[in-house]
Amino acid sequence: MTELIKNSNISVDCVVFGYDTNTKSLNLLLIKRYLESETDHKVLVDDYVLTGYHIYEHEKLDDAATRVLKELTGLTNQYKKQFKAFGDPDRLRNEKDILWIDNEKFNFRTVTIAYYFLVKTEDVDLTHNKNQAEWFSIHQLPELGFDHKKIILEAYEDLKTKCLAEPIIFELLPNKFTINDVQDVYESILDIEIDNRNFRRKLINKKYIIPLDEKQIGVSKKPAQLYMFSKDVYDKMYEKNYLINI
């Protein structure tokens, strides 16, 4: 069995984006960071951070990020992207960060490799989460520790660009969906309103959007046509500079 030796200078931080089909909103999974003084129990740190951890010496970066996600959510095989390294010498020098680091006994000079993941919020059970994890709207984030606001904003910008270049939004949808479902995801990520008729026309003409001989069930309004995304068809027609024109 490999001995788990931690590399105290390199960590991974995971930006976990989750789409909520009920509220039609893009959310972010954060964990509580809380610290009291040992003498008088004065609150020293009370905010939220991304989930991250130092890598083990034997680990590949991708494996470390996958491990962190599994420990947080129980999920594996989710879409993930390594998007940037953050190595400013002063990135962990905020007053609260210094208190936290001193308590946790880890290295101030830590370079973190940032990843983002795409999950469905309904797939994550937070009932007994040991890290006090919570979902927050990407547009209503709480007070954040370390340089995690910067990491989150850069991940979000990368996600917005990526969703126009690759069909990654289907990672956030059920296997069978309506055209409105797809539009809702795009609108939540891009924070824009999309013309419904124009979007519908463009989407149903995509060969990788397969119409099914099924309609919604259990809805009060007129049931809509269901579709599925075919990765096989998309891969066959993919071109290097292909953009998803919405």
Rank of each mutant, 00 (worst) to 15 (best):
F117S: 13
D184F: 08
R200F: 05
T161L: 14
V182D: 01
F170R: 09
V185G: 01
K96W: 03
Y79Q: 08
H128R: 11
F199M: 02
D158P: 04
A155W: 01
I138G: 10
R201V: 05
A133R: 03
L72W: 05
R200V: 04
N196M: 10
A133H: 04
Q132R: 13
A165C: 12
A155Q: 05
K207Q: 11
G145R: 02
A165V: 04
N107D: 13
I210V: 08
K130R: 14
L172P: 07
R109V: 14
V185D: 01
K105F: 02
V185S: 08
K84V: 10
K202C: 06
L75Y: 13
R109H: 14
K215C: 02
D97H: 00
G145P: 00
K150V: 12
Q132H: 14
N180E: 13
D102F: 02
E143T: 07
F177A: 01
K130F: 11
F199I: 01
T127K: 15
W135F: 15
R93G: 05
N196R: 12
D181C: 01
F117M: 09
E71R: 14
I204Y: 06
V185T: 09
Q82V: 12
T161M: 07
N103D: 07
A133N: 03
H139T: 15
N175H: 12
V119Y: 10
L69K: 04
K206L: 08
V185A: 02
D97N: 06
I98H: 04
E171K: 11
T112W: 10
F136A: 11
V185C: 07
N205W: 01
T161E: 12
E193T: 02
I113F: 11
K162W: 06
L144S: 04
F86Q: 01
R93C: 06
L203M: 07
L92W: 00
L75Q: 12
T121S: 15
E71P: 03
K81W: 06
F136C: 12
T178Y: 00
T112P: 04
N180A: 11
I151W: 11
A165P: 00
V182I: 05
I194R: 06
F146R: 06
E214V: 06
N103A: 12
I101Q: 03
D90N: 15
N196L: 13
D88L: 05
A114Y: 09
D88T: 04
Y208A: 00
A85C: 13
D195Q: 09
S188I: 03
F199D: 03
N180M: 05
N77I: 08
Q82K: 14
G87H: 12
F177D: 00
E166S: 14
G87L: 04
I194K: 09
Y115D: 10
K81L: 14
K149D: 08
N129D: 14
R109N: 15
I168M: 08
D213L: 03
P142S: 05
L92S: 08
Y186R: 00
K96M: 09
P89G: 12
L153E: 15
W100Q: 00
D195M: 06
S137V: 01
L141E: 07
N107P: 02
L172M: 15
L144C: 05
F117L: 12
I113W: 13
T112F: 13
L144P: 03
Y79R: 02
